[in-house]
């Protein structure tokens, strides 16, 4: 009936309005978060202290079974992983500097 569709229409209008303001709120929070994270990672103290140790890495995977390779690449380095059905391959391409790759040792020397 007209009454029904009129109330449904009104409900939809209200809901869309509500969703719009919720999305705007989310946008603001996302913006705040991104800015925060950017500032945080650019700060020299946190840059200096933003590291993990070899021990940390060993703790995330069983060192008697797993091998961990660490890749440190400059920003904008491209990483390509092949389709696993075709090949098990990773390629790295940097334009802004050399890439460092090393294995995380599984002994306790503490040296990477």
């Amino acid at each position: 009936s007209t009454v029904e569709s009129s109330s449904r229409y009104q409900m939809l209008v209200n809901e869309c309005q509500e969703l719009l303001s919720k999305e705007q709120q989310l946008d603001e929070l996302l913006h705040m978060c991104t800015t925060q994270l950017k500032l945080l990672t650019e700060e020299s103290e946190s840059q200096h202290l933003g590291y993990v140790t070899c021990q940390d890495l060993r703790s995330i995977a069983d060192p008697s079974e797993r091998m961990l390779m660490v890749i440190k690449a400059p920003p904008e380095t491209q990483m390509q992983v092949s389709d696993p059905n075709e090949a098990l391959q990773i390629s790295l391409k940097s334009t802004r500097g050399p890439i460092d790759v090393f294995l995380c040792p599984d002994d306790s020397s503490g040296v990477c």
Partner: peptide
């Protein structure tokens, strides 16, 4: 810590069988 024992962010790890 000695500089050769830490890995600064950002980095990527490849995890595979030994």
């Amino acid at each position: 810590p000695p500089s050769n024992s830490v890995i600064h962010l950002p980095f990527i790890i490849v995890n595979t069988s030994k």
